[in-house]
């Protein structure tokens, strides 16, 4: 028996905005477990959209649908329509390798390759057949991630020698080196100290000019600081004893935090649970 969902409120993006990513009735299963149910979502170009919600509500799972990282989990199955630039990206006809060049990703824990800073940046470009000058690409990407001045004299040194915050910006530089249209960030600051967090947040504001950004965060202050729109996910217990996530409310960040339509949202953003 499908568990009925509590009421939800999803605001549509106004017509004047171009939609970069869109979800229609997306559900994700792990094996026979329904992990996230019936997500409808529209993400406009050049905006930052934050996913917030308690643990286990499926926000990371939904994020990974956009670059099909769920394909790497053998038991995962994604239902529904996911559109990127108006084209469907689910199904066999779309190559996930090609998709991931256009939809980059930054992970929770900084994970630079155990190679030089230079090679970290050029790897993605090399495998995707980059035709231009690699030295310029490295400088451009590192400048784009506000890291150039700190590392320009040690490009041949290991990326693992950098501090945590620098490593995360290296990962962002690595992601933008392959000129994606969207950058997905899965709790990018949760392993960083407050100063590094601020640097990454400032960087996100700059990146917004050129990229669409979707960020998962546990930190509600971060969501309110950086994002234009916020999606609040919640989890309900299922009959089988597991948890099932669903989208409660999606709106402009200001409305989510100061004028939420749903009671769950109000309780969560005011710190009453989660």
């Amino acid at each position: 028996m499908p568990t009925p969902l509590p009421s939800t409120s999803i605001s549509e993006v106004s017509d004047s905005k171009t939609i970069a990513l869109q979800m229609e009735k997306v559900s994700v299963y792990y094996g026979s477990n329904l992990a996230v149910k019936d997500v409808y979502l529209e993400i406009p170009e050049h905006e930052i959209v934050a996913f917030i919600g308690p643990s286990g509500c499926g926000k990371s799972t939904i994020l990974r649908c956009f670059n099909r990282m769920n394909d790497l989990i053998p038991s995962a199955r994604v239902d529904g329509r996911i559109l990127f630039d108006g084209e469907e990206i689910t199904g066999k006809r779309v190559d996930p390798v090609e998709l991931r060049r256009r939809v980059g990703m930054v992970f929770q824990k900084p994970n630079p390759f155990p190679k030089s800073i230079y090679d970290n940046i050029t790897f993605g470009a090399r495998i995707n057949g980059y035709q231009g000058n690699y030295d310029e690409l490295v400088e451009r990407s590192l400048r784009g991630a506000a890291l150039w001045d700190e590392v320009k004299d040690k490009l041949q040194e290991s990326g693992l020698g950098l501090s945590g915050g620098q490593q995360q910006r290296l990962c962002i530089a690595r992601a933008i080196a392959i000129e994606p249209e969207v950058i997905l960030m899965d709790e990018p600051c949760s392993a960083l100290d407050p100063i590094s967090t601020i640097k990454v947040e400032e960087l996100m504001h700059e990146l917004k000019e050129r990229y669409t950004i979707v960020i998962v965060t546990h930190n509600m202050q971060q969501a309110s600081r950086v994002s234009d729109r916020t999606a609040f996910f919640n989890a309900v217990a299922t009959d089988q004893g597991g948890k099932m996530g669903y989208l409660v409310e999606y709106n402009h960040t200001q409305d989510i935090f100061s004028n939420p339509k749903e009671e769950y949202t109000r309780d969560y953003v005011s710190g009453r649970f989660g």
């Binding site: 670059n67 990282m69 790497l72 390798v97 090609e98 991931r100 060049r101 980059g104 990703m105 992970f107 824990k109 994970n111 630079p112 390759f113 155990p114 790897f123 993605g124 495998i127 995707n128 990962c171 690595r174 992601a175 392959i178």
Partner: peptide, 27 residues
């Protein structure tokens, strides 16, 4: 070899063999 290394490769548009050959095997 931590799985995060493989994910980093896949997220940049690498195929499985590219991830193994360039990152997993050297490590």
């Amino acid at each position: 070899i931590p799985n995060s290394l493989r994910l980093a490769g896949y997220a940049l548009g690498a195929t499985r063999w590219q991830v193994i050959w360039s990152h997993v095997l050297p490590a």
